[in-house]
Design a protein around this nucleic acid. Structure first.
Length: 502
RNA sequence: UCCCCGAUAGCUCAAUGGUAGAGCGAGCGGCUGUUAACCGCUAGGUUGUAGGUUCGAGUCCUACUCGGGGAGCCA
Protein backbone atom coordinates (compact mmCIF):
# COMPACT_ATOMS: atom_id res chain seq x y z
CA UNK A 1 0.00 0.00 0.00
CA UNK A 2 1.48 3.32 -1.07
CA UNK A 3 1.80 6.17 1.44
CA UNK A 4 0.59 9.54 0.23
CA UNK A 5 3.27 12.07 1.15
CA UNK A 6 5.17 15.18 0.07
CA UNK A 7 8.70 15.70 -1.20
CA UNK A 8 9.93 17.42 1.98
CA UNK A 9 9.12 14.21 3.93
CA UNK A 10 10.68 11.68 1.55
CA UNK A 11 13.51 10.97 3.98
CA UNK A 12 10.94 9.43 6.35
CA UNK A 13 9.86 6.96 3.66
CA UNK A 14 13.09 5.57 2.25
CA UNK A 15 12.50 2.00 1.05
CA UNK A 16 8.72 2.44 1.09
CA UNK A 17 6.26 2.88 -1.75
CA UNK A 18 4.98 6.48 -1.80
CA UNK A 19 2.55 8.55 -3.83
CA UNK A 20 3.54 12.12 -4.75
CA UNK A 21 1.26 14.75 -6.25
CA UNK A 22 2.93 17.49 -8.21
CA UNK A 23 3.97 19.17 -11.42
CA UNK A 24 6.66 18.48 -14.00
CA UNK A 25 9.54 20.93 -13.50
CA UNK A 26 11.69 19.41 -16.21
CA UNK A 27 12.18 16.09 -17.99
CA UNK A 28 15.24 14.41 -19.45
CA UNK A 29 14.79 11.44 -21.72
CA UNK A 30 17.78 9.17 -21.92
CA UNK A 31 17.06 6.25 -24.21
CA UNK A 32 15.26 3.72 -22.08
CA UNK A 33 15.32 5.96 -19.02
CA UNK A 34 13.15 8.98 -18.33
CA UNK A 35 14.00 11.44 -15.58
CA UNK A 36 11.17 13.66 -14.34
CA UNK A 37 12.03 16.48 -11.97
CA UNK A 38 8.84 16.77 -9.94
CA UNK A 39 7.94 19.74 -7.77
CA UNK A 40 5.05 19.54 -5.35
CA UNK A 41 5.13 22.84 -3.48
CA UNK A 42 7.29 21.46 -0.67
CA UNK A 43 10.38 20.82 -2.77
CA UNK A 44 11.73 19.01 -5.79
CA UNK A 45 12.83 15.46 -6.40
CA UNK A 46 13.82 13.28 -9.31
CA UNK A 47 11.54 10.48 -10.46
CA UNK A 48 12.85 7.78 -12.80
CA UNK A 49 10.83 5.72 -15.23
CA UNK A 50 12.50 2.71 -16.85
CA UNK A 51 11.25 1.48 -20.21
CA UNK A 52 10.25 -2.19 -20.12
CA UNK A 53 8.34 -4.48 -22.47
CA UNK A 54 5.23 -4.03 -20.33
CA UNK A 55 5.10 -0.23 -20.14
CA UNK A 56 5.98 0.84 -23.70
CA UNK A 57 2.82 2.87 -24.15
CA UNK A 58 3.06 4.50 -20.74
CA UNK A 59 6.73 5.32 -21.33
CA UNK A 60 5.99 6.98 -24.66
CA UNK A 61 3.20 9.04 -23.11
CA UNK A 62 5.34 10.08 -20.15
CA UNK A 63 8.19 11.06 -22.44
CA UNK A 64 5.95 13.62 -24.16
CA UNK A 65 4.82 15.29 -20.93
CA UNK A 66 5.18 19.05 -21.23
CA UNK A 67 6.66 21.24 -18.54
CA UNK A 68 4.18 21.91 -15.66
CA UNK A 69 1.97 18.95 -16.51
CA UNK A 70 0.25 17.89 -13.31
CA UNK A 71 0.61 14.29 -12.26
CA UNK A 72 0.67 11.78 -9.44
CA UNK A 73 3.50 9.32 -9.16
CA UNK A 74 3.67 6.13 -7.13
CA UNK A 75 6.90 4.28 -6.58
CA UNK A 76 9.67 3.32 -4.23
CA UNK A 77 11.52 6.16 -2.49
CA UNK A 78 15.26 5.72 -2.36
CA UNK A 79 18.35 7.60 -1.37
CA UNK A 80 20.38 8.72 -4.38
CA UNK A 81 23.16 11.28 -4.36
CA UNK A 82 22.70 11.99 -8.07
CA UNK A 83 19.20 13.34 -7.54
CA UNK A 84 18.17 16.88 -6.49
CA UNK A 85 17.43 16.78 -2.78
CA UNK A 86 19.23 13.46 -2.37
CA UNK A 87 16.17 11.26 -2.91
CA UNK A 88 14.70 9.58 -5.94
CA UNK A 89 11.44 7.81 -6.70
CA UNK A 90 11.39 4.74 -8.99
CA UNK A 91 8.13 5.20 -10.88
CA UNK A 92 5.77 2.23 -10.74
CA UNK A 93 2.56 4.10 -11.55
CA UNK A 94 2.18 7.45 -13.23
CA UNK A 95 -1.18 9.17 -13.47
CA UNK A 96 -1.46 12.32 -15.57
CA UNK A 97 -3.92 14.78 -14.03
CA UNK A 98 -3.51 17.27 -16.87
CA UNK A 99 -1.04 17.21 -19.74
CA UNK A 100 0.28 20.75 -20.21
CA UNK A 101 1.64 21.94 -23.54
CA UNK A 102 3.75 24.98 -24.37
CA UNK A 103 4.40 26.30 -20.85
CA UNK A 104 5.89 29.72 -21.54
CA UNK A 105 8.57 29.91 -18.85
CA UNK A 106 11.26 27.55 -20.05
CA UNK A 107 14.40 26.60 -18.13
CA UNK A 108 16.38 29.14 -20.17
CA UNK A 109 16.77 32.87 -19.56
CA UNK A 110 13.86 35.32 -19.76
CA UNK A 111 13.60 39.10 -19.54
CA UNK A 112 11.89 40.96 -16.68
CA UNK A 113 8.92 42.17 -18.74
CA UNK A 114 8.09 38.69 -19.95
CA UNK A 115 8.41 37.26 -16.45
CA UNK A 116 6.26 40.02 -14.96
CA UNK A 117 3.57 39.41 -17.58
CA UNK A 118 3.62 35.79 -16.45
CA UNK A 119 3.88 36.51 -12.74
CA UNK A 120 1.02 34.07 -12.09
CA UNK A 121 3.22 31.28 -13.50
CA UNK A 122 6.59 32.70 -12.49
CA UNK A 123 5.75 31.83 -8.85
CA UNK A 124 6.41 28.20 -9.72
CA UNK A 125 10.07 28.84 -10.51
CA UNK A 126 12.54 27.86 -7.83
CA UNK A 127 13.82 31.30 -6.88
CA UNK A 128 10.35 32.84 -6.68
CA UNK A 129 9.16 29.89 -4.63
CA UNK A 130 12.02 30.44 -2.17
CA UNK A 131 11.43 34.20 -1.92
CA UNK A 132 7.71 33.99 -1.20
CA UNK A 133 8.28 31.34 1.47
CA UNK A 134 10.75 33.65 3.19
CA UNK A 135 8.29 36.54 2.86
CA UNK A 136 5.61 34.43 4.53
CA UNK A 137 7.95 33.70 7.44
CA UNK A 138 8.94 37.36 7.76
CA UNK A 139 5.26 38.33 7.99
CA UNK A 140 4.72 35.64 10.62
CA UNK A 141 7.80 36.80 12.55
CA UNK A 142 6.44 40.35 12.53
CA UNK A 143 3.05 39.32 13.92
CA UNK A 144 4.55 37.07 16.57
CA UNK A 145 7.02 39.69 17.70
CA UNK A 146 4.31 42.18 18.55
CA UNK A 147 1.69 39.76 19.81
CA UNK A 148 4.24 38.09 22.11
CA UNK A 149 5.18 41.47 23.57
CA UNK A 150 1.63 42.48 24.35
CA UNK A 151 1.07 44.88 21.47
CA UNK A 152 -2.55 45.26 20.39
CA UNK A 153 -3.28 45.10 16.66
CA UNK A 154 -5.08 48.23 15.54
CA UNK A 155 -6.19 48.13 11.92
CA UNK A 156 -5.88 51.60 10.49
CA UNK A 157 -8.18 52.71 7.65
CA UNK A 158 -7.07 52.51 4.02
CA UNK A 159 -9.35 55.36 2.93
CA UNK A 160 -7.86 58.54 4.35
CA UNK A 161 -9.96 61.72 4.35
CA UNK A 162 -7.31 64.42 4.17
CA UNK A 163 -4.37 64.93 1.90
CA UNK A 164 -2.17 66.44 4.61
CA UNK A 165 1.43 66.88 3.59
CA UNK A 166 2.69 65.33 0.38
CA UNK A 167 -0.66 65.22 -1.45
CA UNK A 168 1.18 64.71 -4.71
CA UNK A 169 2.19 61.21 -3.66
CA UNK A 170 -1.33 60.03 -2.77
CA UNK A 171 -3.76 58.09 -4.91
CA UNK A 172 -7.14 59.81 -5.19
CA UNK A 173 -10.33 57.81 -4.95
CA UNK A 174 -13.87 58.97 -5.64
CA UNK A 175 -15.80 58.36 -2.43
CA UNK A 176 -19.50 58.98 -3.17
CA UNK A 177 -18.62 62.25 -4.82
CA UNK A 178 -15.94 63.29 -2.34
CA UNK A 179 -12.22 62.85 -2.92
CA UNK A 180 -10.44 60.62 -0.44
CA UNK A 181 -6.96 59.16 -0.56
CA UNK A 182 -5.41 55.72 -0.29
CA UNK A 183 -3.55 55.57 3.02
CA UNK A 184 0.18 56.21 3.10
CA UNK A 185 0.55 55.39 6.77
CA UNK A 186 -1.55 54.43 9.77
CA UNK A 187 0.63 56.38 12.15
CA UNK A 188 -1.70 59.17 13.24
CA UNK A 189 -4.45 56.64 13.93
CA UNK A 190 -2.00 54.54 15.92
CA UNK A 191 -0.98 57.50 18.04
CA UNK A 192 -4.61 57.77 19.10
CA UNK A 193 -4.86 54.05 19.81
CA UNK A 194 -1.65 53.82 21.84
CA UNK A 195 -3.22 56.23 24.36
CA UNK A 196 -5.78 53.47 24.93
CA UNK A 197 -3.63 50.30 24.81
CA UNK A 198 -0.15 51.71 25.45
CA UNK A 199 1.49 49.40 22.90
CA UNK A 200 -0.16 49.01 19.51
CA UNK A 201 0.75 48.17 15.93
CA UNK A 202 -0.83 48.11 12.52
CA UNK A 203 0.16 45.92 9.63
CA UNK A 204 -1.21 46.25 6.16
CA UNK A 205 -0.79 47.66 2.67
CA UNK A 206 0.00 51.31 2.03
CA UNK A 207 -0.05 53.27 -1.19
CA UNK A 208 2.32 55.84 -2.64
CA UNK A 209 1.76 57.55 -5.97
CA UNK A 210 5.45 58.41 -6.28
CA UNK A 211 6.56 58.33 -9.89
CA UNK A 212 9.62 56.31 -9.01
CA UNK A 213 10.82 53.65 -11.40
CA UNK A 214 13.61 52.12 -9.38
CA UNK A 215 14.36 48.74 -7.86
CA UNK A 216 13.42 50.04 -4.42
CA UNK A 217 9.89 51.29 -5.14
CA UNK A 218 6.39 49.86 -5.29
CA UNK A 219 3.14 51.84 -5.41
CA UNK A 220 1.46 49.30 -3.12
CA UNK A 221 3.56 47.85 -0.32
CA UNK A 222 3.16 46.42 3.15
CA UNK A 223 4.26 48.27 6.22
CA UNK A 224 4.25 47.36 9.88
CA UNK A 225 4.05 50.27 12.29
CA UNK A 226 4.35 49.93 16.06
CA UNK A 227 3.52 52.86 18.33
CA UNK A 228 4.17 53.02 22.06
CA UNK A 229 3.09 55.43 24.81
CA UNK A 230 5.46 56.61 27.55
CA UNK A 231 8.38 56.17 25.21
CA UNK A 232 11.22 58.42 24.09
CA UNK A 233 13.55 58.01 21.12
CA UNK A 234 15.80 55.53 22.94
CA UNK A 235 12.85 53.27 23.73
CA UNK A 236 11.76 53.29 20.10
CA UNK A 237 15.31 52.58 18.87
CA UNK A 238 15.57 49.67 21.27
CA UNK A 239 12.29 48.27 19.98
CA UNK A 240 13.43 48.61 16.36
CA UNK A 241 16.70 46.85 17.10
CA UNK A 242 15.03 43.95 18.93
CA UNK A 243 12.47 43.70 16.15
CA UNK A 244 14.92 43.54 13.24
CA UNK A 245 17.11 41.05 15.11
CA UNK A 246 14.08 38.83 15.72
CA UNK A 247 13.17 38.81 12.03
CA UNK A 248 16.72 38.02 10.93
CA UNK A 249 17.12 35.22 13.49
CA UNK A 250 13.84 33.66 12.44
CA UNK A 251 14.76 33.69 8.73
CA UNK A 252 18.20 32.25 9.48
CA UNK A 253 16.65 29.56 11.65
CA UNK A 254 13.91 28.51 9.23
CA UNK A 255 15.20 29.14 5.72
CA UNK A 256 18.74 27.95 5.13
CA UNK A 257 17.72 25.90 2.06
CA UNK A 258 15.81 28.83 0.53
CA UNK A 259 18.69 31.24 1.19
CA UNK A 260 20.96 28.74 -0.53
CA UNK A 261 18.67 28.63 -3.58
CA UNK A 262 18.89 32.43 -3.67
CA UNK A 263 22.69 32.24 -3.26
CA UNK A 264 22.40 34.68 -0.36
CA UNK A 265 25.61 35.42 1.51
CA UNK A 266 24.34 34.18 4.88
CA UNK A 267 27.42 35.36 6.79
CA UNK A 268 26.45 38.97 6.06
CA UNK A 269 23.10 38.35 7.78
CA UNK A 270 24.71 36.51 10.67
CA UNK A 271 26.77 39.62 11.40
CA UNK A 272 23.58 41.64 11.94
CA UNK A 273 23.31 41.26 15.73
CA UNK A 274 22.70 43.82 18.46
CA UNK A 275 23.91 46.39 19.12
CA UNK A 276 23.42 48.10 15.75
CA UNK A 277 25.52 51.15 14.94
CA UNK A 278 24.14 54.53 15.95
CA UNK A 279 25.15 57.95 14.73
CA UNK A 280 23.51 61.32 14.67
CA UNK A 281 22.65 63.12 11.47
CA UNK A 282 25.36 65.65 12.30
CA UNK A 283 27.95 62.87 12.67
CA UNK A 284 26.74 61.35 9.40
CA UNK A 285 27.17 64.72 7.69
CA UNK A 286 30.75 64.96 9.00
CA UNK A 287 31.43 61.40 7.94
CA UNK A 288 30.20 62.15 4.41
CA UNK A 289 32.62 65.06 4.12
CA UNK A 290 35.52 63.07 5.58
CA UNK A 291 38.63 61.80 3.82
CA UNK A 292 37.55 58.32 4.76
CA UNK A 293 34.50 58.56 2.48
CA UNK A 294 36.50 60.23 -0.29
CA UNK A 295 39.07 57.46 -0.29
CA UNK A 296 36.37 54.78 -0.03
CA UNK A 297 34.76 56.16 -3.18
CA UNK A 298 38.12 56.46 -4.90
CA UNK A 299 38.74 52.80 -4.16
CA UNK A 300 35.24 51.92 -5.43
CA UNK A 301 35.88 53.85 -8.61
CA UNK A 302 39.26 52.20 -9.18
CA UNK A 303 37.71 48.80 -8.57
CA UNK A 304 34.81 49.51 -10.92
CA UNK A 305 37.17 50.74 -13.63
CA UNK A 306 39.37 47.67 -13.28
CA UNK A 307 36.33 45.44 -13.48
CA UNK A 308 35.08 47.25 -16.59
CA UNK A 309 38.41 46.61 -18.32
CA UNK A 310 38.37 43.00 -17.17
CA UNK A 311 34.82 42.44 -18.45
CA UNK A 312 35.54 44.09 -21.78
CA UNK A 313 38.52 41.78 -22.28
CA UNK A 314 36.38 38.83 -21.28
CA UNK A 315 33.65 39.72 -23.76
CA UNK A 316 36.18 40.20 -26.56
CA UNK A 317 37.84 36.87 -25.80
CA UNK A 318 34.50 35.05 -25.82
CA UNK A 319 33.43 36.79 -29.04
CA UNK A 320 36.66 35.68 -30.65
CA UNK A 321 36.24 32.13 -29.40
CA UNK A 322 32.71 32.02 -30.77
CA UNK A 323 34.00 32.74 -34.27
CA UNK A 324 36.14 29.59 -34.26
CA UNK A 325 35.02 27.19 -36.98
CA UNK A 326 33.56 23.81 -36.05
CA UNK A 327 32.30 24.99 -32.69
CA UNK A 328 29.85 22.66 -30.97
CA UNK A 329 26.35 24.06 -30.49
CA UNK A 330 26.35 23.68 -26.73
CA UNK A 331 29.73 25.43 -26.56
CA UNK A 332 28.54 28.33 -28.68
CA UNK A 333 25.41 28.55 -26.53
CA UNK A 334 27.48 28.57 -23.36
CA UNK A 335 29.72 31.31 -24.75
CA UNK A 336 26.70 33.39 -25.72
CA UNK A 337 25.31 33.06 -22.19
CA UNK A 338 28.64 34.09 -20.71
CA UNK A 339 28.85 37.08 -23.03
CA UNK A 340 25.35 38.17 -22.01
CA UNK A 341 26.15 37.83 -18.31
CA UNK A 342 29.40 39.75 -18.75
CA UNK A 343 27.65 42.50 -20.72
CA UNK A 344 24.99 42.83 -18.06
CA UNK A 345 27.58 43.29 -15.33
CA UNK A 346 29.58 45.53 -17.63
CA UNK A 347 26.68 47.93 -18.06
CA UNK A 348 26.19 48.04 -14.27
CA UNK A 349 29.86 48.68 -13.63
CA UNK A 350 29.96 51.37 -16.32
CA UNK A 351 27.06 53.09 -14.58
CA UNK A 352 29.09 52.96 -11.38
CA UNK A 353 32.09 54.52 -13.08
CA UNK A 354 29.77 57.27 -14.29
CA UNK A 355 27.98 57.77 -10.96
CA UNK A 356 30.72 57.42 -8.34
CA UNK A 357 32.40 60.78 -9.04
CA UNK A 358 28.99 62.43 -8.80
CA UNK A 359 28.23 60.63 -5.52
CA UNK A 360 31.65 61.62 -4.21
CA UNK A 361 30.94 65.23 -4.97
CA UNK A 362 27.47 65.06 -3.39
CA UNK A 363 28.99 63.60 -0.22
CA UNK A 364 31.90 66.06 -0.10
CA UNK A 365 29.60 69.04 -0.55
CA UNK A 366 26.92 67.75 1.80
CA UNK A 367 25.15 70.66 3.45
CA UNK A 368 23.96 70.37 7.03
CA UNK A 369 20.19 70.87 7.01
CA UNK A 370 19.31 68.93 3.87
CA UNK A 371 18.02 65.38 3.85
CA UNK A 372 20.34 62.46 3.17
CA UNK A 373 20.22 61.39 -0.47
CA UNK A 374 20.06 57.82 -1.67
CA UNK A 375 23.78 57.74 -2.49
CA UNK A 376 24.62 59.26 0.93
CA UNK A 377 22.66 56.53 2.69
CA UNK A 378 24.41 53.88 0.64
CA UNK A 379 27.80 55.28 1.59
CA UNK A 380 26.98 55.35 5.30
CA UNK A 381 25.59 51.82 5.22
CA UNK A 382 28.61 50.57 3.26
CA UNK A 383 30.96 51.71 6.04
CA UNK A 384 29.27 49.35 8.50
CA UNK A 385 28.67 45.62 8.54
CA UNK A 386 25.54 45.91 10.70
CA UNK A 387 22.44 48.06 10.28
CA UNK A 388 22.96 51.72 11.14
CA UNK A 389 20.57 54.02 12.96
CA UNK A 390 20.93 57.62 11.87
CA UNK A 391 19.22 59.86 14.44
CA UNK A 392 18.37 63.51 15.11
CA UNK A 393 17.78 65.00 11.66
CA UNK A 394 17.13 68.71 11.20
CA UNK A 395 13.41 69.31 11.70
CA UNK A 396 13.26 71.45 8.58
CA UNK A 397 13.53 68.42 6.27
CA UNK A 398 11.21 66.17 8.31
CA UNK A 399 7.48 65.84 9.01
CA UNK A 400 5.61 68.16 11.40
CA UNK A 401 4.71 65.46 13.94
CA UNK A 402 8.30 64.63 14.92
CA UNK A 403 9.39 65.61 18.44
CA UNK A 404 11.55 68.68 18.65
CA UNK A 405 14.83 67.97 20.44
CA UNK A 406 15.13 69.51 23.93
CA UNK A 407 18.82 70.42 23.66
CA UNK A 408 18.88 71.68 20.08
CA UNK A 409 15.67 73.14 18.67
CA UNK A 410 16.86 72.66 15.10
CA UNK A 411 16.76 68.88 15.54
CA UNK A 412 14.01 66.31 15.90
CA UNK A 413 14.09 63.03 17.78
CA UNK A 414 13.78 60.77 14.76
CA UNK A 415 15.75 57.99 13.10
CA UNK A 416 16.15 56.00 9.94
CA UNK A 417 17.56 52.49 9.89
CA UNK A 418 19.85 51.76 6.97
CA UNK A 419 20.44 48.15 6.02
CA UNK A 420 24.01 47.11 5.17
CA UNK A 421 25.33 45.94 1.78
CA UNK A 422 23.73 48.91 0.06
CA UNK A 423 20.11 47.90 0.67
CA UNK A 424 19.39 51.28 2.21
CA UNK A 425 16.48 52.62 4.21
CA UNK A 426 14.23 49.96 5.71
CA UNK A 427 12.82 51.80 8.73
CA UNK A 428 11.82 55.39 9.39
CA UNK A 429 10.57 56.44 12.80
CA UNK A 430 10.49 59.06 15.52
CA UNK A 431 9.37 60.19 18.88
CA UNK A 432 6.22 62.25 18.28
CA UNK A 433 5.66 65.87 19.26
CA UNK A 434 3.53 65.67 22.40
CA UNK A 435 3.38 69.39 23.23
CA UNK A 436 0.21 71.05 21.96
CA UNK A 437 1.70 74.51 21.35
CA UNK A 438 4.77 73.23 19.54
CA UNK A 439 2.70 70.93 17.34
CA UNK A 440 0.30 73.73 16.36
CA UNK A 441 3.23 76.00 15.56
CA UNK A 442 4.87 73.33 13.37
CA UNK A 443 1.62 72.78 11.50
CA UNK A 444 1.32 76.49 10.85
CA UNK A 445 4.92 76.64 9.64
CA UNK A 446 4.17 73.89 7.14
CA UNK A 447 0.97 75.63 6.05
CA UNK A 448 -1.27 72.76 7.13
CA UNK A 449 -5.00 73.17 7.42
CA UNK A 450 -5.88 72.68 11.08
CA UNK A 451 -9.43 71.50 10.71
CA UNK A 452 -8.79 67.94 9.46
CA UNK A 453 -6.30 67.47 12.31
CA UNK A 454 -8.54 68.57 15.21
CA UNK A 455 -8.98 64.97 16.31
CA UNK A 456 -5.20 64.55 16.25
CA UNK A 457 -4.72 67.67 18.36
CA UNK A 458 -7.17 66.21 20.90
CA UNK A 459 -4.46 63.66 21.74
CA UNK A 460 -2.30 66.57 23.02
CA UNK A 461 -5.24 68.12 24.91
CA UNK A 462 -6.25 65.05 26.87
CA UNK A 463 -3.43 63.26 28.67
CA UNK A 464 -0.60 63.81 26.22
CA UNK A 465 2.49 61.71 26.96
CA UNK A 466 5.85 61.12 25.27
CA UNK A 467 5.32 58.47 22.62
CA UNK A 468 6.77 57.25 19.37
CA UNK A 469 7.03 54.52 16.81
CA UNK A 470 8.30 53.60 13.39
CA UNK A 471 7.38 51.98 10.11
CA UNK A 472 9.20 49.04 8.56
CA UNK A 473 8.79 48.30 4.86
CA UNK A 474 8.14 44.60 4.46
CA UNK A 475 9.26 44.37 0.82
CA UNK A 476 12.49 46.25 1.46
CA UNK A 477 13.16 43.87 4.33
CA UNK A 478 12.47 40.86 2.12
CA UNK A 479 14.75 42.30 -0.53
CA UNK A 480 17.55 42.82 1.95
CA UNK A 481 17.29 39.44 3.68
CA UNK A 482 16.92 37.55 0.38
CA UNK A 483 19.69 39.61 -1.24
CA UNK A 484 17.55 40.59 -4.25
CA UNK A 485 18.45 43.14 -6.87
CA UNK A 486 14.83 44.16 -7.44
CA UNK A 487 11.89 44.72 -5.11
CA UNK A 488 9.40 43.41 -7.70
CA UNK A 489 10.22 39.83 -6.68
CA UNK A 490 9.43 40.39 -3.00
CA UNK A 491 5.64 40.58 -3.28
CA UNK A 492 3.30 38.11 -5.02
CA UNK A 493 1.64 40.65 -7.31
CA UNK A 494 3.75 43.82 -7.51
CA UNK A 495 2.12 47.14 -8.24
CA UNK A 496 4.55 49.61 -9.73
CA UNK A 497 4.69 52.60 -12.02
CA UNK A 498 3.21 51.23 -15.24
CA UNK A 499 2.38 47.76 -13.92
CA UNK A 500 -0.97 46.53 -12.56
CA UNK A 501 -1.10 43.16 -14.38
CA UNK A 502 -1.68 40.39 -13.58
C1' U B 1 9.02 65.99 -13.99
C1' C B 2 14.18 65.13 -15.75
C1' C B 3 18.57 62.05 -17.59
C1' C B 4 20.66 57.37 -19.84
C1' C B 5 19.74 52.57 -22.42
C1' G B 6 16.68 49.38 -25.28
C1' A B 7 12.55 47.18 -28.76
C1' U B 8 14.51 41.54 -34.55
C1' A B 9 11.06 34.08 -34.36
C1' G B 10 6.92 31.83 -28.54
C1' C B 11 11.73 33.06 -25.26
C1' U B 12 17.05 34.93 -24.91
C1' C B 13 19.96 37.24 -28.35
C1' A B 14 23.19 37.82 -33.37
C1' A B 15 23.32 40.37 -38.12
C1' U B 16 30.13 46.71 -42.09
C1' G B 17 23.75 50.76 -45.17
C1' G B 18 23.57 45.35 -49.61
C1' U B 19 20.30 37.40 -49.54
C1' A B 20 17.12 38.40 -41.73
C1' G B 21 20.47 34.02 -38.37
C1' A B 22 21.72 30.91 -33.73
C1' G B 23 20.43 28.60 -29.16
C1' C B 24 16.29 27.32 -26.21
C1' G B 25 11.14 26.04 -26.62
C1' A B 26 7.65 23.24 -30.20
C1' G B 27 7.34 18.69 -33.78
C1' C B 28 9.91 13.99 -35.53
C1' G B 29 13.93 10.37 -34.72
C1' G B 30 18.33 8.29 -31.74
C1' C B 31 20.67 7.08 -27.00
C1' U B 32 20.13 2.88 -19.82
C1' G B 33 22.21 7.61 -14.92
C1' U B 34 20.77 12.47 -16.81
C1' U B 35 21.68 17.30 -13.58
C1' A B 36 19.37 24.14 -17.87
C1' A B 37 21.71 16.33 -20.64
C1' C B 38 23.43 15.23 -25.53
C1' C B 39 23.20 14.09 -31.18
C1' G B 40 20.43 14.49 -36.12
C1' C B 41 16.26 16.53 -38.92
C1' U B 42 11.66 19.95 -39.48
C1' A B 43 8.53 24.13 -38.94
C1' G B 44 8.72 29.07 -37.17
C1' G B 45 9.55 36.69 -39.25
C1' U B 46 4.84 42.92 -41.73
C1' U B 47 12.61 43.66 -37.48
C1' G B 48 7.38 48.28 -31.70
C1' U B 49 4.27 52.41 -34.56
C1' A B 50 4.29 56.62 -38.08
C1' G B 51 7.16 59.57 -41.13
C1' G B 52 12.00 60.91 -43.44
C1' U B 53 17.25 60.33 -45.81
C1' U B 54 19.11 56.72 -49.58
C1' C B 55 19.69 53.21 -55.79
C1' G B 56 18.96 50.27 -51.32
C1' A B 57 17.21 50.80 -44.08
C1' G B 58 16.78 45.74 -38.86
C1' U B 59 21.00 49.26 -39.29
C1' C B 60 21.05 56.50 -40.28
C1' C B 61 17.42 60.89 -38.76
C1' U B 62 12.62 62.77 -36.31
C1' A B 63 8.27 61.93 -33.44
C1' C B 64 5.38 58.63 -30.67
C1' U B 65 4.34 54.04 -27.80
C1' C B 66 6.09 50.43 -24.58
C1' G B 67 9.99 48.42 -21.48
C1' G B 68 14.74 48.65 -18.43
C1' G B 69 17.96 51.63 -15.18
C1' G B 70 18.78 56.13 -12.47
C1' A B 71 17.76 61.37 -10.23
C1' G B 72 14.22 63.78 -7.23
C1' C B 73 10.90 61.63 -3.33
C1' C B 74 10.52 57.70 -0.22
C1' A B 75 9.51 52.24 3.34
Amino acid sequence: MATRTTIDRLSEHVGQTVTLEGWVYNTRAQGKLLFIILRDGTGMTQCVLEKTDENLEQFQRARKLGQESSLTITGEARVDERSVGGHEVRIAELHVVQAAEGYPITPKAHGPEFLMNHRHLWFRSKRQWAILRIRSTIVDAIRRFYQDRGFVLIDSPLFAPSAGEGAQTLFEVDYFGDTVYMAQTGQLYLEAACMSHRKVYCFGPTFRAEKSKTRRHLTEFWMVEPEIAYADLDDVLQLAEDFVCAIIQRVLADHRPELEILERDVSALEKCVAPFHRMTYTEAAELLRSDRVASLLDEDLARAEARVAELKAEVDAREEERKQPGLKNWKADKLAQEILAAREELSEREDEVKNIPHHKQLAANFQWGTDLGGSDETIIARLHDRPVFVTHYPGACKAFYMKQNEQDERLVNNFDMLAPEGYGEVIGGSQREDDYETLVRKMEEEGLDREPYEWYLDLRRYGSVPHGGFGLGVERTVRWLCGLKHIRETIPYPRMMGRVYP
